Computed example of a mutant assay.
Amino acid sequence: MTQADTDRQEIRQLVENWALWRDAGDWTRFATLWHPRDGWMNATWFQGSAPDFIKASREGFESGVSILHFLGGHTADVSGDRAVAQTKMTINQRADIDGVEVDVVCTGRFYDFLARHKGRWTLVRRQPIYEKDRLDTVDPATRLTLDPRLLNRYPTGYRHLAYVQTKAGFTVKDGLPGLTGAAVEQLYSEGERWLTAA
């Protein structure tokens, strides 16, 4: 294998470990995936440093917040000791809305900025791209009426996820990248600059 092949394989393993270790609550190993100084996580419900994200995720996990991740296709562009990776994913969250148990599924991509640190790839910044989502009652016979004003506060790519998270008490960020639009175009530009600065 070429060095580029090895790099892409290691990056893919990092991305897979992120989902597995976070969802399993393996916080010690999860912490090893992030750049030790610059790790940063952006999400609907959280924007901040990797240590703070780990702390918030752990607290949520221990209090019963159920957020799971599934991964699909993956690609990585590598330039020296920097890389940008994109990975198809779904975010699955189970929650309670007004006494009704629901599942929300959001499909999108993880857009990752990575750097080689002391010989291994680390995650510098993760920005999900939210492409589409849906909400279902766990019991299909149960009726649920959503507040249209709250639902329509957020972009179509993650409005149901935002609805569930807002109802659960999270402060959800508006204007995050979707399938198209200014926010995702800016993200792509930032990715290009990250690679060319290597």
Rank of each mutant, 00 (worst) to 15 (best):
R94A: 12
K173T: 00
F61Q: 04
R8P: 08
E192R: 15
K55C: 12
G119A: 02
P177V: 01
T145C: 00
A31D: 08
A76Y: 09
Y130T: 03
V84L: 06
G157E: 09
P148K: 03
V15K: 15
S57N: 13
A168V: 02
W21Y: 14
R29W: 04
E192D: 15
L144C: 00
Q86S: 10
A141C: 07
T156R: 13
L195F: 11
S79P: 01
R126L: 01
W18E: 13
Q47D: 03
G80E: 06
V102S: 14
A162L: 11
K55G: 11
H69E: 02
R29D: 03
W21H: 10
D147Q: 02
V105S: 14
R12A: 15
L146F: 03
A19I: 11
D133P: 05
F46R: 04
T145E: 00
G175N: 00
A115M: 07
V84A: 05
E101M: 15
A76K: 09
I11E: 10
M41H: 07
P36R: 07
R143H: 08
K55T: 15
S57E: 10
A56T: 15
R37A: 10
Y111C: 02
D26F: 03
G191E: 12
W27G: 04
E192I: 15
T28C: 01
W45F: 08
T142I: 05
R125Y: 01
H117N: 04
L20Q: 14
R134D: 12
P36I: 08
D136I: 14
G80P: 08
L150D: 02
R116I: 05
T87H: 04
R109G: 03
P36N: 08
T2M: 13
G181A: 02
I91Q: 10
Q9D: 13
P155L: 08
M41E: 06
E59I: 10
F110I: 06
Q186E: 06
G64Y: 02
G175F: 00
P36K: 06
W40M: 11
Q127D: 00
Y158F: 14
R143G: 05
G191A: 13
G64N: 01
T156Y: 07
K173H: 00
T166V: 06
V100N: 14
Q47A: 04
D133W: 09
Q3E: 13
D77V: 13
R94P: 05
V172T: 01
D133Y: 10
R125W: 02
E16A: 15
R149T: 03
D23L: 09
G119H: 03
Q127G: 01
